[in-house]
Nucleic acid binder design. Structure first.
Lengths: 346, 346
DNA sequence: ATTGGCACTCACGGTTGAGGAGTGCCAGCG
DNA sequence: CGCTGGCACTCCTCAACCGTGAGTGCCAAT
């Protein structure tokens, strides 16, 4: 069993290792931390910690480094989330000043977060699960092209140019618009897709010209909805991976791959379980199933009122968890507040 | 002066070096290429090439590698663009089947290109320089929010949610829409921005309610136009950089940075000078001003009919130029054809 | 339970030396 | 004059070696 002091030793090891990138030995610990006991005693504790697989020695007669399990214990029991400095707070709020547009708000958020932490920052769009269609709009572009726009009540906009091969007068256009609107507005994205499908199956009579066109447009709308369905991410700071490359034993290829594909990250962030403060961390091997065994992700939920989602950071397993958890928490709070202010005007 | 055979030797060195990643010596050349002369003769040629700074020896008694200047001569005089295999052609066309939407077309193109070459693929949006505003649309979202949409005749769509703090009836809405449309439709993006500015300066009377709203909307439209102004890129395959990391002496950080910022790449691609076939290459140190001294970019112009732009590849200086040039050329042609087919329906 | 002492392990850095790839140069040859 | 074989030379690469020092595990003493 690991003693109370043993856990303190673990904390010291994690802190020093994150700090110096060097395996930390018993001597270093008594030097840098005021334990009031001798190096030999620390050594005994370290042997215990090693038995519990919380730390490991890269080779005989070298200092110890935390295992993934060790980081986990550190994050769960030992790390107090470090509050941000005033300077950091003002930095965030200066980043997030002013935007109304959801796209704008999220892209600023992600930049603030990467700038604050030097890690790869990730912001999820508000979950499609709770998004309802609030508007469907058709804009005729000429030459038989139609711009099809769908808006959800979470503020997401998706648009698509569709080729209907025909021109329409205001009456027809209004009809099609009304038809699609009654079909979708107020419905969830999932429902909407389903209703379009059944609608297409029912109205399979291509004789009336606008009916054929409506079918084409319905398909375009379905594609728009499909886009909402895949929870999209906004990312920033991927270049930072190159800086921290030595922190990843292998290549950073799988990380860049995950960043580019996004879907892996969406699933990973979706499966993480947040604590009572909305914070979550997934460490090293815990991400093995996603091909990211050498990386960690910390997230914080935002927008607790309605269709929430997460902001997160992706970085090496050896990251500064207290600081990064604080950063995602702070940014998530700012973002929540910003979206709530918006809500009052809705 | 470098002899005819000397240039052949240069070609052999470039080819072998790209192939093997090893400095190539005189012996290797006579083995792998049928020059019909002895190694000593090749050595004499190589000494000449070294005098011309076309090749260089990493250290005494090692083989030679091409200098950037050497690659330049190779690309300009020695590389015949290698035609694609039928398999590659079908791969491209299967990638590019069907899309009408410009966004769709470009994102498929970029994926085709990265899949084909294993490099970072870049596609520029059709140049804003020749883009004219074709539509301005206002969609009321409720709660004082307005979706402002601007479309250009090159097919680009930009949208933005603006907060007008008010509801409007159809008449007012039509008035504002008409006002903005007459101001912008048919004008270039640059003109449009200018006209909005002067318009804002003239109508500075905040007493009439819709006039205040129009001003807010005009600002939103201006932001939309601003977005067109920055020639945006579509990118894919940045993870490939990690695979080829050893090809870059230093870090891949500046490359990832350029990819994330985009603006560097836009300028770089803008400054490249294409040959009579629309192909261009920028090699190694030639990119020093952009912080990419160890990278090369090859591009091909597309859409020669109207608002053209470029598709390109970003990779290590030591890349397979013949194949990559062939790839960008082929993909550019497909893309041009696709957009032209589209034009006929306009 | 804690500690000082001590023998032991092993990564790290520098040195040395053999091997080998490749060069530059030169004299000879067609 | 261009080409060739020969040869001495350079210097990178690799492996072996070794001293140093950090850090450990263990133990007897407190």
């Amino acid at each position: 069993m690991v003693s109370e002091r043993g856990l303190e030793v673990l904390r010291a090891i994690v802190q020093d290792y994150v700090d110096t990138r060097e395996p930390v030995g018993s001597k270093t610990i008594v030097d840098r931390h005021a334990f009031g006991v001798s190096a030999a005693t620390i050594r005994n504790d370290m042997a215990l910690l090693e038995d519990e697989e919380l730390i490991v020695a890269p080779h005989t007669s070298s200092g110890r480094i935390p295992t993934d399990k060790g980081y986990r214990v550190f994050v769960d029991h030992l790390a107090e989330v470090r509050p941000l400095t005033p300077a950091q707070r003002t930095a965030i709020s200066s980043f997030l000043e002013g935007p109304v547009d959801l796209d704008d708000a999220l892209s600023r958020t992600v930049r603030a977060l990467t700038q604050l932490t030097g890690q790869v920052a990730i912001v999820q769009y508000p979950s499609f699960e709770r998004a309802n269609v609030s508007h469907v709009e058709l804009v005729q572009l000429g030459s038989g092209r139609m711009l099809v726009i769908v808006v959800t009540d979470t503020g997401r906009v998706s648009q698509r140019v569709s080729n209907v091969q025909d021109e329409f007068d205001e009456t027809d256009l209004g009809r099609m618009r009304a038809e699609l609107s009654t079909l979708l507005v107020g419905r969830s994205v999932r429902d909407g897709l389903h209703r379009i499908e059944t609608h297409l199956a029912l109205h399979d009579d291509p004789t009336k010209p606008w009916d054929a066109a409506t079918r084409v447009l319905a398909r375009a709308v379905a594609e728009d909805l499909e886009e909402f369905r895949q929870d999209r991410l906004v990312l920033a700071g991927s270049a930072n991976l190159a800086k921290r490359e030595s922190d990843f034993r292998g290549s950073i290829y799988p990380l860049l791959e995950a960043i580019e594909q996004q879907v892996t990250l969406v699933r990973l962030m979706g499966e993480m379980v947040a604590d009572e403060h909305g914070l979550a961390a997934s460490i090293g091997r815990e991400n093995e199933a996603f091909g990211l065994a050498e990386a960690s992700v910390v997230t914080s939920d935002y927008d607790a009122t309605g269709a929430g989602a997460r902001v997160g950071l992706l970085g090496p397993t050896r990251m500064d968890y207290p600081t990064n958890l604080a950063a995602v928490r702070a940014v998530a709070r700012y973002l929540t507040r910003m979206l709530e202010e918006d809500d009052t005007s809705r």
